[in-house]
Design a protein around this nucleic acid. Sequence first.
RNA 1: GCCGGAAUAGCUCAGUCGGUAGAGCACUUCACUCGUAAUGAAGGGGUCGUCAGUUCAAGUCUGAUUUCCGGCUCCA
Length: 585
Amino acid sequence: MVNFKEDENLHVLNHSCAHMMAQAVKHLYPNAKFWVGPVVDEGFYYDMDLGDAVLNDEDIEKIEKEMKKIAKSGIKIYRREISKAEALEIFKDDPYKMDLLSNMEDGNISCYDQGDYTDLCRGPHVDNVKLCRNFKLVKHSGVYWKGDASNQVLQRVYGVCFPTPEELEAHLQLLEEAKERDHRKIGKDMNLFMSDDLVGRGLPMFLPNGYLVWQELENYIRTKEQKLGYQHVLTPCVGTVDLYKTSGHWDHYKENMFPPMEVEGESFVLRPMNCPHHMRIYANRPHSYKELPIRIAEIAHDFRFESSGTLKGIERGRHFCQNDSHIFVTPDQIKDEVKGVCDLIFSTYEDFGITDYRCVLSLRDPADTKKYHPDDEMWNKAEQALRETLNEIGIEYTEEIGEAAFYGPKLDVNVKPAIGNEITLSTCQLDFCLPAKFELTYIDADSEKKTPVVLHRAILGSIDRFMAYILEETKGNLPTWLAPVQVKILPIKNDDDELNEYVKKLKYALYDANVRVESDDRSEKFGYKMREAQIQKVPYIAVIGKKEAEEGNVSFRLHGEQETVTVKFDEFVEMIKEDIATKKH
RNA sequence: GCCGGAAUAGCUCAGUCGGUAGAGCACUUCACUCGUAAUGAAGGGGUCGUCAGUUCAAGUCUGAUUUCCGGCUCCA
């Protein structure tokens, strides 16, 4: 997928197209005021104040038409350097431009003229509107001015622009294909999960096939963690409100929690995360520095009252199972342990063939005193420690201000789903805050009580979200070890006793090897059964006819490939076992 | 939560000017026993998301509501 922001030519072209769109909007809505119209990874957009007008799909078509007219006119685009005084005069009727100008310095201001439209802009732009003719407006939305829900709503229109009609067409094709990869569509097609109005919004349920995949993922990560010294626990999905008041989560996140249940004078909530439970497990008995690091892990069921507009299949629901762990360390152990977590993250990605990810060092915004635990010294120490460790390990990352958790900085590993915004798959968070709040201690070598440091980390993130991502990456063609049905046996005939015996023998040999196998002995045409097995995305489709039975062979098709391969019976069973054991992708 | 769009059979969708519901797939039954992506025939299946309103008459028009979709905000 092209990146409009990084490709310089596309960047200039799309930015110019945003201006052309603004010009068209100005023609149709003479009172329109314009906020910003930047190029983003997926194209361009412009945020506009159209007074009381609210755009719908039809209006977008009208704007497209007007844009085509402008592009056809072939008017030229001119750059003009202007003084701040001039700028303030030109845009005096536009409060949005005045707002922008208030932060700009004299001598560094330019604007662009194209026919009857002038816009404040740094540029550069193409020199003629006709170069912007291969465009498409792809979506629109109401957005809060400056992203603040207390501000007025502006109209945002997104578009894309390309040098040639062929490139535009190819891009639109890609957008269509992304819809086919959407995990919600795959989940429905493959009977993996469902949702139900009566159960409730944002509460997806895993069907038998989906739960098989889910269990494989759970077993995979638990086994991996066990080898690394993680100790798995099971804790309840509810806790007292006081538990979350102690941790500080209550103050920061209560509006995103299911509201409290009052029972016998006590107040409980469904838990939105597991840190407090794990803190209390640590506090269950005294600890020596010799025991640390202590790695408490849990595939933990959590509930968050996410805003209705943010729900998205199993990628973001109101219940999910976190692949969570809290690691209690001494300050000296931070680096080694963060390194260990990073190694675990990247070895997991290797197992799944995930290569397209982005690491972010998420820091606090010191100006946002409300969101973050107020202790400058603690933050400086934590951020510095995490940054140093990442540098030492040699991880490439970008720093982002204001993305930290309220209790500490974190390393986030983000990926891009088929549709929508980047999501965080893995995280490793450094926390000097909660251990103190829970008054956790260990006895150090000098017999003094000290406060441990906690690493919060998730590798698969949540099992649910990871499954969504892996479905989209593989387009539902899961690797054999994850596939709900791993082998489908198709007998050529189903009324031949000898053949049936042979099919049964193969089936039981595979059962004995712990392979998920099904045979399709319905009295349907062979081609029909083959088609159905292909649609179900079964990795191995074994074809058994007279020929195979007589020669002790198995013919099979692998993962949608057209060719059929024939091997010996035992060889086939061994091959599948090997495939599953090595988690080949 | 906010802005816009959508909702018709299990699934994908058609339904014209308001006149009482349609296809393909799936399902059931029967026949066919088949060599690599759809065998044929017959049959069952719908309070047109829900609640109001307008009308002689509403899947179709109006309002509210629920859910879903695209964005925005949020994401411990």
